[in-house]
């Protein structure tokens, strides 16, 4: 009984229990190994973060948008054509900012199969980077420049949606990511 004071309860395990423990042990080892094993593939979560300030990052983002802007989309978000940014060895650097006025900037045009280093940060609140429909999700924090490498494999129109609650304008936060050949 679970409400009785037990006597002599330090007893050897039953056979079924022992077998189950072996199985569970093996499964736990597999679960453990899968994570380091996952690092042999190209689908891992970035370890690269730089300390920054909201002010400095805002300036970087402004300069980036100014340099590559080709117009504005129907929601007034600046469109940045990032197809010709030099890829270098580690990927082409592009900058996403989540603003206090509940906007993501800019609207990206990327090139298919090109490797990008997406920098993401916020100028105040915490936000979420959720690329749809790929369903890849990251956390965005102020004062941290999080660098995520990504290689678009399909062309088409994708959305970056904010999925961390960031205040009353949360649901208005999204921007477009177009991938072209």
């Amino acid at each position: 009984m679970s409400i009785e004071t037990p006597k002599n309860w330090w007893k050897p395990l039953n056979k079924e229990e022992r077998i189950w423990l072996y199985i569970v042990g093996v499964w736990a080892v597999i679960l453990t190994i899968m994570m380091p094993y996952g690092h042999t593939r190209d689908h891992n979560i970035s370890n690269e973060t730089w300390k920054t300030t909201t002010k400095a990052y805002t300036a970087v983002s402004k300069a980036f948008i100014k340099k590559y802007k080709i117009g504005e989309d129907e929601r007034g978000v600046p469109i940045v054509d990032a197809r010709n940014i030099p890829e270098g060895k580690r990927g082409a650097d592009i900058f996403l900012i989540a603003t206090r006025a509940w906007q993501f900037k800019p609207h990206f045009i990327l090139k298919k199969d090109k490797k990008y280093r997406i920098h993401m940060s916020s100028d105040f609140y915490e936000h979420g980077f959720s690329l749809q429909p790929m369903n890849l999700n990251y956390q965005i924090l102020p004062n941290r420049d999080f660098v995520v490498t990504m290689t678009p494999k399909q062309s088409g129109k994708f959305m970056i949606v904010c999925n961390e609650y960031c205040g009353p304008g949360h649901h208005n936060m999204f921007t477009t990511l177009e991938v072209k050949e």
Binding site: H43, V148, P152
Partner: peptide
């Protein structure tokens, strides 16, 4: 889940 991830875009 692992195969779903490995099917997705390469990320790092």
């Amino acid at each position: 889940q692992w195969f779903a991830l490995w099917d997705n875009w390469p990320i790092g």
